[in-house]
Design a protein around this nucleic acid. Structure first.
Lengths: 233, 233
DNA sequence: ACCTGAACACCGTTCAAGT
DNA sequence: ACCTGAACACCGTTCAAGT
């Protein structure tokens, strides 16, 4: 008696990939091994995922789906803090996730959604778009690896050829519908670049901004005689 | 007329690997491709490097060698700042270095030397061993990826079986000769763990420490009406 | 002491077919 | 519409030899 044939789909493939990576580790996760797990020939996967890169992008989507929505009715610092800790918990559930995130460069809709929502936590908290911009860069590494590339277009530029201005404007308009917060920040920093006074997206500036926030914080703790014992209280 | 045969050595192999990765990218760097570059059969490399992992560890050594020594006669914040910026420059010269560093878990002598010297910048600046400990964790991601694992022994524990106390003491003594600063910090946090009040090496605590340093810093900038224009002055 | 050659058990992905 | 099979051009690493 032939079993009812259950067709593969993208979602089944991605979930199986996440589960398998949890089990055998990311290095051992190959297209061939995943196919075997699904009881299918390797090439069957390529109907649902263009290549291995896209499989990894899809696995990131699954992880992002595990991050809690922002808490409501709290000051922005609490909202951000809880969200970051939730993201951290999601990453910890999947030990391979950190290293995969760090290699992703494609800005999939799932990633952009998360970024937009994250940006919104600062803007809703009343931070200026300027400060929010640099804060997003600074917190990037702590949120996880790919924030850096969001407002920094060097990665995107490599992927896509330059666009005529009208196409750029059209894209901006379309982005505004889905990602209003990202758009607000991107527009403000583009304006800054025009005036040549602010810092649109200078990689070195962003790095030093984050470094100085940390060093200044350390200095204040040192001056106050901070110790982890007292912090525990 | 036969050319004088120049034997391979570890250093030649590592330098060639770094140069080749710069040229063709880290993904394309294979033992086979590297051997070809050196005009040698793949297996010849295995005399100088146990396997590919060790090749990557060796490439990290080369990178560390490019980081400037700490500047002298300056306050600790400046010393740290300059060192971090120097490390950043080294990483930027080798675009593949970041991703390689993030996958390294072995604590080679080169890595320990760098860590010890880095720790020393804070201790010499007068920070307490306690604060230095948490600061080292906090700055880890900014320095680069592997600091996290230094005082956190979970990675080391996986690699090596547990030791009898005498062996541990002997190792400590030996470490004290080469890495006095690491030892000072490690001993202080071990003591804390005994009192069960401080935070020896709680991963979650370290993460939140760093997160809160950033968030508090952002809040202060927000309150002061910070803008990148004024920061430029 | 150092390098070689052949072989093993893997990869991701293509192409042209099968149902 | 979806899956298959065979093949291609690669990997890292072993082992037993060569000079």
């Amino acid at each position: 008696m032939p079993e009812k044939r259950v067709y593969l789909n993208r979602d089944r493939v991605l979930r199986a990939a996440v589960a398998l990576a949890d089990e055998i580790g990311i290095d051992a996760l190959s297209m061939r091994r995943l196919a075997q797990e699904l009881g299918v020939v390797p090439m069957a996967l390529y109907k649902h995922v263009q290549n291995k890169e896209e499989l990894l992008d899809g696995m990131v989507e699954v992880i992002i789906g595990e991050i809690d929505a922002p808490v409501v009715d709290a000051e922005w610092k609490t909202v951000v803090r809880e969200r970051v800790l939730s993201a951290r918990r999601a990453l910890q559930r999947h030990p391979w996730a950190r290293s995969v995130l760090e290699t992703r460069t494609r800005q999939t809709p799932a990633v952009l959604d998360y970024m937009d929502s994250f940006t919104g936590m600062f803007l809703d908290g009343g931070l200026s778009v300027d400060l929010t911009h640099h804060v997003m860069h600074a917190i990037g590494g702590r949120m996880w690896g790919f924030t850096q590339e969001l407002f920094d277009d060097s990665a995107a530029r490599k992927a896509a050829p330059p666009m005529p201005p009208e196409a750029q404007a059209a894209m901006m308009r379309q982005m505004g519908d889905s990602y209003p917060n990202i758009l607000a920040v991107a527009m403000a920093s583009a304006h800054d670049e025009g005036t040549a006074v602010g810092h649109g997206c200078d990689d070195q500036f962003e790095f030093e901004f984050a470094l100085d926030v940390m060093l200044d914080g350390f200095e204040r703790l040192h001056e106050r005689g901070w110790s982890s014992r007292r912090a525990a209280v």
